[in-house]
Design a protein around this nucleic acid. Structure first.
Lengths: 215, 215, 215, 215
DNA sequence: CATGAATGAGCTTTCATTCAT
DNA sequence: GATGAATGAAAGCTCATTCAT
């Protein structure tokens, strides 16, 4: 329960949740993430949460409401570091070199991501099928993160550290590389042995210098 | 219907499909891809296919069978170029430079990918929830492609074109970059305007040289 | 079943009903009439009809649909004699005296009413709670019957058989008297002993001459 | 609130009702009358009354209890004038002519009826489905009123004002005429324009002399 | 007294699957 | 082979009622 408690705290810290609500959320996250939203039944969630089925519907008007109550706070959480201005200002100046910035970002977000992995999985699974989630994701997350990242990129381009290329393309390439790493590491092949520090470093080096050998 | 016909031909060419079967498959792909497997009903598929509900179950014992009949041929299709030996031999020698190989591969697979996109979407959506699919995917696809790609990588490393790094890492970085591009292009932001040739080139350059500026 | 068969025939003669549909309708009429629409459960109807609950919903999309399918044909049936023109023409001329017309009308509708009594009960019970039924009732039934009856009244007024009074009032007084009789006879006090012929005659005499003694 | 207060006072004057109880009763009457007893939920009543759901069940053991607590006092109220002996004695002598008695009765009861209309509607809607209500209605109301009215009728028959006919029939004809008027006026067509005084008079004249023209 | 969270039985409805035609 | 009516289990959800606070 401790690990789950931490996940809940990460996601819902501001809100006041009763004991039953917590149990429902933990159970729902577990089952949604295991079977997918549509294939999960509220009765199964209730059983796993140890509450009556009616209790779920007292707190969440519909099953979809339950999904939303899980995914939307996640979105807020994910963009948090990009919208907190102080943090941004620090960021810009703190890291002279791109490599340092990348390393810090990956380190910084890694344990949040790991802890929230089940919820992130739900989010990506369900985004294609629920318009409101999709809209929220693109307008709240994608746009905001992109704006923030664009500024950073331009900063580093001005310093001559990053090649001249539209920010869109730079952002796409860098972000997919980082996410590709995390996706491989934690979703596709979590069962393999990973030297996290080494692979992080390799990913960063790749982003900076590619795979080609300089002669 | 022509576009769908082509998709079917791509996927099921060897098998003999009756007219009704084709309609069922096309309808199922459409609905599975739009709503997800679990949220799709066989009655809706039957209606869209213009057949009776019973007809679906005459050809596919269960709903899951229908899913399998759609996704498994796709897997076979996707690895085809990597297992056809002749093609491989050609590949190895044909492209002196990594860039040329990457360019050719992307070009080569792009329209297959586009045409099969709905089915690919279904595959990735459902893999997490169906063990047999997952196993098939890892053992048939991931492993075979990785083996093939490893050989290629070692070849280019021997030629001194690619830096020394374990093939696993090289493969991961290269593949996620290519897939990240295609995913951004065709799934996340298909509505944006893309200069395909230019972005392909940027992706290749990124894989080879990264984002860092050489001074 | 014979009595119920006749009821169904009266109500649904034009439509082709399968055996199961008939059973569902008969069961639904029985239970709706006994407990009221809202207090009846589809599972109880299914059990009484001897079909699976799903079967009900194959034929009637919703529970409300089932209600509508029962009540709307009744409305059509009830106004039938007033909209069939031939019948009307005959009516006008056939009965020289108002008394004869009233007697014929009561006789004519009595067994239809008795047979359809459970459905009529449902109709009046549910009209206050379902707008579409209410609208249909007022526009289809009330208006059409009133129009027809108004003409008759004016005819008899012209012949000097009925006092001068607006048709609305005449119609109201006559109709409520007839319905009041039938309501008392078949709904409120069906368990009392009734001399039907005698009470019919009394009702007619009352409509014509009232309760006051002429000296 | 004033109109509702008056309704409550009419119905529950003897009992001591707390503020919450009054709100519950008013809300329940409103919702029962609008949707019917079975289709009304206690939670909706609680919300409309502005109390917690539990509060309803503190005052009324069950939902049915709430219905009974509304309908039974109504019955008592409705027969009140017929069982108060003094009033009866007065009645008998006060009105020489039947017409005057009818006029006085209609006038006398009209505003009570209007004010209690929602409750009366509930009563008639639910009587068919609740045996205790039905029994109470027949034994308390119907019988008592009939007894009282029979006496009156015989009195007027003795005076030669009413034709010789069994009291049952006379009562039925007179009562259905009066109720038919009130039902048309206040339930079926309340939206039409009514000249109340005129229609009352017409109804009385009809009861006395019928629709037939005397030659 | 009053509250409202919690309950679990029961509701309407959907669904994959079967099978007589 | 194809059909679609029939099934009954299970779905999401509502509700009257209870009870700790």
């Amino acid at each position: 329960m401790s690990e789950e408690e931490m996940m809940l705290q990460q996601l819902f810290d501001e809100e006041k949740l009763t004991e039953k609500q917590k149990k429902i959320l933990v159970a729902a996250i577990g089952i949604f993430s295991e079977k997918g939203y549509a294939a999960s039944s509220t009765s199964e969630i209730a059983k796993k949460a140890g509450v009556a089925e009616g209790t779920i519907f007292r707190h969440y008007k519909t099953k979809k409401d339950l999904l939303t109550s899980i995914v939307v706070p996640l979105m807020t959480k994910l963009i948090a570091p990009f919208v907190v201005n102080d943090f941004n200002k620090v960021l810009d100046r703190q890291f002279e070199r791109v490599e340092d910035f990348l390393r810090a970002t990956i380190e910084n977000r890694r344990d949040v991501l790991i802890r929230l992995l089940p919820v992130i999985k739900i989010m990506f699974q369900e985004i294609p099928f629920h318009q409101e989630l999709r809209e929220q994701f693109f307008e709240q997350i994608a746009k905001k993160i992109f704006d923030r990242v664009s500024l950073l990129i331009k900063g580093y381009q001005d310093k001559g550290q990053i090649i001249e290329m539209p920010a869109e393309s730079v952002a796409r390439l860098a972000i997919t590389s980082v996410l590709g790493f995390l996706f491989s590491r934690y979703v596709l092949f979590p069962h393999l042995e990973w030297d996290d520090e080494l692979e992080t470093e390799r990913t960063i080096q790749f982003i900076m210098h590619g795979l080609g050998k300089k002669e």
